[in-house]
Amino acid sequence: MMSTLLDVKNLWVKFPSRHGVFDAVRGVSFTLGRERLGIVGESGSGKSMTGRAILRLIRPPGIVEADHINLDGVDLLRKSEKDMRAVRGERISMVMQDPKFSLNPVMTIGDQIIEAYRLHSSASKAEAYTKSLEMLEAVSIRDPERVMRAYPHEMSGGMGQRIMIAMMLIPNPEILIADEPTSALDVSVQRQVLDIMDKLVKERGMGLIFISHDLNLVADFCDRVLIMYAGRIVEVCDADKLHDAQHPYTRGLLNSLPRLDAPRDRLEVLQRDPAWSDAESVSGRI
């Protein structure tokens, strides 16, 4: 049995609104070991909220409730905001979905990466610069010296995302939460980025939570998969058995994908069943 890095039990994320309380995440439980855990679902299924709730990044009036979110046996929900800042980036780091909104538009890429690195280590500027260059090379950015001088708007989406990944990995965290890290990338670059993350999980014994809407990618890349629908986990399975998934929602998603090897005139459209969102959340704890 592998060691458990993170243990989440009965997590709820609630947003009070004029029409009553909206539950974005409803009673989700799972554990994360030194593995690649995938969370898949459509937009609005609560997968990103789950990732953010772990880092306590849900802003008020949003409410996070859970029996516990344990990192090495310490409940993150009981930590002060100041202690949380020591967790974010250094122990658990998160790659957000959209580099356009996550990078500072008025700061050069280089300054941002150097800042991320020096916040968590006592390296000198020169060391941080060399380390940043190395990291950009590690995420296969061509001409990293030019990129260090550039501003985020000069980067393509794929480059922006790789820069984000470089920035998040530079403090060497134990857990990486990657929220759709590759959805803006091309298949070829996607592979490279996944390989980089894969290497980190293997070599450093990092735990990875990989949030994605891409079922094939998750089936290919992760060890275990949680499938979320309307804020709940509807199915938990081993990633290599995802294509034999039982839940009608998972099957519907798989069938709506166009496939090169099996051409069809029309794509299947997912028919939703209200019973899916009413059912109890399945536990992803081991």
Partner: peptide, 9 residues
């Protein structure tokens, strides 16, 4: 999303 992608395609 893939389910919506199917509808649009």
């Amino acid at each position: 999303d893939v389910s919506v992608q199917a509808e649009i395609l």
